[in-house]
Design a protein around this nucleic acid. Sequence first.
DNA 1: CTTTTTCACTTGCCTGGGCAAGTGAAAATA
DNA 2: TATTTTCACTTGCCCAGGCAAGTGAAAAAG
Lengths: 161, 161
Amino acid sequence: MMRLMDTQSPWLDDDQQDLWQALLTVVIALPAALDRQLQRDAGISNFEYGVLAQLSMADEATMRLSDLARVCDSTQPRLSKVMDRFEARDWVARRPDPGDGRYTLATLADAGRHKLVESAPEHVAQVKRLVFDPLSAAQRRHLGAALTRIAATVRRETEGG
Amino acid sequence: MMRLMDTQSPWLDDDQQDLWQALLTVVIALPAALDRQLQRDAGISNFEYGVLAQLSMADEATMRLSDLARVCDSTQPRLSKVMDRFEARDWVARRPDPGDGRYTLATLADAGRHKLVESAPEHVAQVKRLVFDPLSAAQRRHLGAALTRIAATVRRETEGG
DNA sequence: CTTTTTCACTTGCCTGGGCAAGTGAAAATA
DNA sequence: TATTTTCACTTGCCCAGGCAAGTGAAAAAG
């Protein structure tokens, strides 16, 4: 029930239903599993880890908050509050962009980089165990290609409104 | 930086990094996009939609809460609070399992089924647009296979502790 | 039969995050 | 130059969800 087979119908067919269920499990349970590991071992969330990692990869470990929000798939208020916490622990520093006072530049501080380097190995191991180990090399390639397309579509949806 | 190429290293190589970034975007931005659509059009979250859908597919539209929590990848407190809201709107009814008073049976009520049927078309259309339309038939098969493996691994992680 | 343990579920407390309104800076308009 | 609009970011209010403690029922132990 709740699904008809006609390909033109508004419903999903059986194969689509299976894919969709698997994707739902992944988008719900995978972040939860990553959060549990990082919270237990490092006291930070998966999202916070991502913010530190993105900053660390930027030139001079510095980015505008709006750019950082975009690459982290974050809203501005959410990132703003994460930066409040990070600044309180001296993991990052904020300052107005000298070129345009509307922007704010965030720079990863030593303590923040240390936190990232310290928590990375266990986190990466968890990612490998949950995502890469179950797949063959070919499956990884296919998965990467498919996810890249979906990610691009979702990003357009998010930004375009 | 933050990534070395050695396959034995604790880091991800470039291809893995790309896959991982795409997966992060999907697990973060896809639920957000689904939530926005459902919240706007139906006033419910993606998770709440999933609860209604799972119940609707069960025999007699009735399930034990613990089973429902499992198929929805939910904790028990989270599901318990969703059921509070649903019961307040007469979308579901809860009663003790006659066979074992520790379990609670949840049954989808008419109003709940109506809500599901009413909100399904736009939601399914959104899923098709964001997930299926960007992919070829072959990519869908490959994606389904890969996600099924990852989902199984994550479920084991979640249940096994 | 009584007591203890093990369940399934719920409740309370606290934090994270969404949205909408507020602030301050730069650009556009007059 | 003065005013308005646009932009990047922050703040306040509210609600969802995680965790740990609490409740009530069934099984196990005595």
